[in-house]
Design a protein around this nucleic acid. Structure first.
Length: 222
DNA sequence: TAGTCGCG
DNA sequence: ATTG
């Protein structure tokens, strides 16, 4: 059923699945680096703790977030934007660890987007009950660069839709080490995460950690 | 209760 | 219109 919605990139490598034109799932791509990634997340969170941000509607998101890199995605009653400073402490976000940047570059290249240089990494922590409604990543002025999303910890159902909210969504189970890359004609596709179910994953404190790499700075300088 | 609608 |  779901298999019908996917086409296989090639029969030799069942670990790459095309979700749409310009969107690819790299199954288990980050599995080897996962321990290093999680250790780096802990270091980042010690400096820029996870927090549940407010939305323009003055409600709180269920997902707790932090950032690393030159720019971080923030939300408050004023709206969504990128900021070089952590609004909770007025300091720059922690630097993007080398292992983050290398993984993001490698995954982007494997999905057909060479020379991806992310300047922002949004770190989302999902506890059981957390979800992210269907949305577009459209706060980045440069739409040439792709989005790279790395899943760690508990599995979650990723919703991948079209360029209009009402278009049907594909449901994709994302497990520890999976990476999704979307760009080009898929860059503005709606996407979201279904409510996380509880499960056992001690390495992440029984939560799901998602790293989302973006180029959030001005166009050019790729 | 999962899916859909639609509020502000 | 909507990362609620």
């Amino acid at each position: 059923m779901i298999d019908d919605l996917f086409s296989r990139l090639d029969s030799e490598d069942q670990r790459r699945e095309i979700l749409a034109d310009g969107a690819m799932l790299l199954h288990g791509c980050a599995h080897a680096q996962a321990p290093a990634l999680l250790a780096a997340v802990d270091e980042i969170a010690a400096v820029a703790p996870f927090r549940r941000m407010q939305t323009p509607g003055a409600l709180r998101m269920s997902v707790a977030m932090s950032n690393c890199g030159a720019l971080g995605w923030v939300s408050d009653r004023q709206g969504y934007r990128y900021s070089p400073l952590d609004p909770d402490n007025g300091r720059q976000w922690p630097a993007m660890p080398e292992v983050f940047c290398q993984l993001a570059q490698m995954a982007a290249a494997a999905a057909g987007f060479p020379d991806f240089l992310p300047d922002a990494c949004l770190i989302n922590r999902y506890e059981p009950g957390s979800k992210l409604s269907l949305h577009q990543d459209k706060d980045e002025p440069d739409r040439e660069a792709p989005i790279v999303s790395v899943s760690l910890g508990l599995p979650a159902v990723f919703l991948f839709g079209g360029l209009k909210r009402k278009e049907p969504t594909t449901r994709v189970l994302l497990a520890h080490g999976d990476v999704v890359v979307w760009g080009g004609p898929a860059r503005l596709r709606y996407h979201g995460v279904q409510t996380l179910k509880h499960g056992l994953f001690p390495e992440t404190g029984n939560s799901r950690i998602n790293l989302t790499f973006r180029k959030a700075g001005p166009p050019g300088r790729q």
